[in-house]
Amino acid sequence: MDIAEIQAYGYFGLTAFLVFVLYSYIYHLYSTDKKEGGHDYENYSNIALKDDIEDTPVSTISDDKEK
């Protein structure tokens, strides 16, 4: 196997790996969405829409810090 061939396999492997990572991330986003222990991602838009200082945070950092 010469260097070009190794590079070609390496290139293919890397591409496959990156595609895998990409789709895993998409899967992760959708599978944890709105689940117990996960996040309600779309609700995070409200961080911008309800951003007055008196508005209740979308997810509070901890109860004692919040007045």
Partner: peptide, 10 residues
């Protein structure tokens, strides 16, 4: 020192 736990995308 934030109150909002989640970091907004911005």
């Amino acid at each position: 020192i934030r109150r909002e736990k989640a970091l907004y995308i911005s």
